[in-house]
Structures are given as structure tokens and as C-alpha cells.
Amino acid sequence: MAKLEVKNLSMSYDGKNKILEDLSLSIQDGELVSILGPSGCGKTTTLRIIAGLLKQTDGEIIVGEKNISNLPVHKREFGMVFQSYALFPHLSVFNNVAFGLKMRKLDKKQIQEKVENVLSVTGLSDLAKRFPAELSGGQQQRVSLARALVINPQVLLLDEPLSNLDAKLRVEMREEIRRLQQELKMTAIFVTHDQEECFAISDKVAVMNRGRVEQFDTPQAIYQEPKTLFVAKFIGFENFIKVVGYDGEAYLTESNIKLAAQAKENTRYLTIRPRQIKIIETANDSENVVKGRIINRTYLGNSYRYTVKTSLGVLKVDDFEHDVLSRDEDVILELAVKNLLPLEN
């Protein structure tokens, strides 16, 4: 268990196409950090470089005080959980878990003790003699986790460990992973493309896009204040208003409308969640009010989703309060200053 530092990591197979570009991350002792991003963004590559399964083109990896950038994979003392679980099919659950300890040449008694201990922590004691093919997906995942934990790794690496499980089990397992990680005070990196999953278990989240970290922050900060267009889109914002300038008080949109929002450099877009746009009765003289016409309506259960055509473009609005409005009705929308977020490109 230690602090993990990734400095200026670059990765390229052919020298031209960069898979990772100048990527840096700093993970504190005992922290669980998620790397979140769409497929192909380089998140798995990052994890594999940290594990030592891939060699970086450039950059450093530091664990505790030790630079391990050039250490071969089998000397890095990490634990890793794979998407396919990667259990050894020819070994029993017990021997799967004992594998790492045998590599460390522990004596039989110690191995027995440690394996039994971790099997009981992960709820696998009854399955010790089974073979992987005789286990359910969830049980295999537990074995995979136990096998990684038993060696008491410096850092626990999890590569989309839940993506092969069904929805209910996924929630159960992620809570289990979080519980174990906190109990053992383990530094961990969790790679996923599922934002709900990563928000639920992480101390911090690194959102990746095209080989770069777009934002590295707490889940709350990322959810409430995405910094870039990509992050906002990825975590579910749907309204994006392009801006072309800032006059000291308000942003000027493409359609020449002024919108007041928090001032920030390099702002290219403003965004607001559909449920934070208010439908108001009369246009008062407050700021950020725009007229529009409903062009579509969808029932979402606890609200109605209106698609409203306005001079700012088409906006999605979720309304919980009003009676149901119908298509072609004219409405007045208020985009409250505090809810309108500036985004970089």
C-alpha cells in the first residue's frame, strides 16, 4: 500500500499515433481512483502500463519513493483483477489464490493461513476445492479479487472487473470491492466505462479522452462542475450552447443572445441540465430568459421531457411541476445563472 504517481506518460506503437499523451495522475495512499472513459480512450492501456504488461514510450511510474518505470511486470508487487477474471482453469480456487504466495516462496503453513483468511473475507471458504469452471460469474470474480488481495499488493489494479456481470450482481460486487478496499486501506485504480459505477465507489475520478486526462477530481466535482465539453457530455449533460465571447458580464452566444454565467477563461460552451431549466409563466426582467416552442414531449415517469426550439438552439427541458404541456405550445424558459456552467472545449 503506497502512494502511486504517474508522470508524463506517453504511449505510441508507431511513433505517430499517440495512444497516451503526457498523462499524469497522482493517487494518494489508500485512495480508490477510477479511470473513466469511452472505449479506445486509453484507460486500459494506462492500467496495463502501470501493471507493467505494456512498456510506455515515455514517462515515469513511482510507487512510494521507488521509481518502477523499468521494472518487469513480475517484480512490481501489484494485484490485478481482469475483465475476463483470468482464473487458472487447471487450479482449484485454493490454488488459484495461493499462486502469488507460492511465487513469493512462502512456506506451506503461511500460505494455508493467508489463503484461508482471504477466502473467508471474500466469502469463498466453502468453494476452496472447486475449480473455476464450476463457479458462477460472481464467484469467479470473487476468486479473482481474492487472488489479487492475498499478496497484500502495493496497489490493486482493476480492469473493468464488473462488466461481465449482470446488473444486480454488479452493484453488489462494486460495494464489496469498495468495502474490502477501505477495510484493507488499499490504494486502488479502477478502470471502467460506466459512470454510475465509478461515481459510486471512487474517491477520485480521472475522465479520459483520446489518451489524455480531461478532468481529475472527486465524483461530486465532476458531476456538478464538469470542466470540458467532453466530460459534460460523457456524464450526461444534454444542452450545449456555443459561445463566441465574454463582455465582462455575460457570454455572447452564436445567436447573439447574452447569457450571464460564471466567468471562466477559455469558455467555448455553456451547459445546463434539463431539470435545471425552469418553465416560467411570464417573462420577468431577470436575466437568461428565452422564448421557445415545444416540438416534442416524452413521458419519463416522474417528469415530462420537452424538446424546445429556442433562439439558443434546441434545448431539452425536464418539467416536474406544471400540468402537461402539448406540442406547439409556446413557453418561456429560465436558465438560472447558478446552474449554467461554462465549459472548455
Partner: peptide, 9 residues
């Protein structure tokens, strides 16, 4: 499985 073994030492 080979990668898992390598990571385990």
C-alpha cells in the same frame, strides 16, 4: 491467465 500469473510474480 498468463498476464495474471506475471502480475502475481
Amino acid at each position: 491467465t498468463e498476464e495474471a500469473a506475471a502480475v502475481l510474480g
